[in-house]
Amino acid sequence: MLEAIRRTATFLREKQILHKLGVLASIAVIGIACWMLYHKLRNVDTARVLKFIAETEPRLIVLSALSVAAAYFTLTFYDWFAVRTIGRRDVPYRINALAAFTSYSIGHNVGASVFTGGAVRYRIYSAWNLSAVDVAKIVFLAGLTFWLGNLAVLGMGIAYHPEAASAINQVPPAVNRVLAYVVLAGLVGYVIWVWMKPRSVGRGPWSVVLPGGPLTLLQIVIGIVDLGFCALAMYMLVPNTPGVDFVTVAVVFVSATLLGFASHSPGGLGVFDAAMLVGLEMMDQDQLLAGMLLFRVLYYLAPFFISVMLLTFRELIVGARSKKLQQIADEPQPGVGQSLKKHGGSGAG
């Protein structure tokens, strides 16, 4: 059976069938989201949305901004964990933090975060003699942390409140609860699997040793804390009537985030928004849209501009250092000129 699975996977990879199916799935998700978003936004009153934005309590905006800052701080541990997992403990935390913050904030906005984030990471980590293969491993392990955290939050949230997920996928709550238990069982099974003995994926130089049981639990905790702060930032900005609890907002938020991620659109634009509007349709749609726009400013735009400035400042410093080193290399070494004069020139003839 395992041999049959291996042959099937090889066939799909050689024919690029999985890649084509992924592209079709992304197009389908974006198309459905655009259709839903059109029906949700056609009756939106722009003046009311702007009015709700202006009337949002500054205290809530500050609390949401602090939650976003805490989420991005947690994101830095994705890289910190991944870099140490591949054995490069010499890379300091500040480099991990810079690489994680800039790669995620730029990847969130540009889209195709695996590639854009990977390019940013390589630019930073290459200065510490990490190869493209090393960076690919870091991207894989950071992505693994992201997905483990997402599945844990989604599984626990839907198991506790399946109606929140049903508002998006239109699946009966009982079925969603069963699916949540399956996801949680899968997570437990994965933890047991990597706990039993060292596991690895890939071949040759691309081989990655998976974190063991205790470290996998740490991965899950990092992912849960990150998503928890993100959901809290969104919760601060949604309407407080009707009284929707935090778990409901968190389940809808994580579901919308995963759909946006699957679509590969920049910032999940359109897909995330449609899922939020559908999942929280019990709220005033204009007021909810106002909160979502504020969230985009705090979580997407502000970090993006900060990252661009940080990378620009870094490039200026790196460029200045390289120029200075080149000038030092071009300067004649002490005693070389005097030696030439003493011997009457270059010694030719």
Rank of each mutant, 00 (worst) to 15 (best):
L187A: 02
A185T: 13
H108F: 12
V153Q: 05
Q170Y: 08
S105T: 11
S126E: 10
K137Q: 14
V110A: 14
T102D: 02
G111L: 08
Y181K: 00
P162Y: 09
Y122M: 10
W147L: 13
N150T: 12
G111P: 07
L130M: 15
K137M: 12
A180W: 00
Y104S: 12
A167W: 01
L179H: 01
F146T: 14
H161R: 14
T102A: 13
R123W: 06
D134G: 08
A100M: 13
I168E: 01
F115E: 12
L179Y: 06
A174C: 00
A99G: 13
R177L: 02
V110H: 06
L98T: 13
R177V: 00
I158V: 15
I138V: 15
Y181M: 05
V153F: 10
A152Y: 05
L98G: 03
H161T: 08
V110L: 14
T116I: 12
A119S: 13
V171R: 07
V110F: 11
V110Y: 07
G189V: 02
Q170H: 14
S105C: 09
A164H: 05
F140A: 15
V114G: 01
Y160Q: 11
Y125F: 15
G143M: 10
R177G: 06
V110I: 15
V133I: 15
I168G: 04
Y125H: 12
Y104N: 10
Y181A: 03
A142S: 15
A167Q: 13
A165C: 10
N176H: 00
I138D: 11
S113Y: 04
A100V: 10
A119G: 02
T102F: 03
S131I: 12
V175Y: 03
G155T: 11
L154S: 13
A132G: 15
A119T: 07
N109M: 13
Y104F: 12
V171K: 04
A180F: 01
I95N: 05
A142R: 06
R121D: 05
A119V: 08
L144R: 11
P173F: 03
Y125W: 09
A119C: 03
V133N: 10
S166E: 09
L148Y: 08
G143I: 11
V114Y: 04
G117C: 08
V153R: 07
R177N: 00
R123H: 08
V139S: 06
V139R: 01
L148T: 07
V139Q: 05
I158E: 03
W147C: 03
T145R: 07
L184K: 03
V178T: 11
A167V: 04
K137L: 12
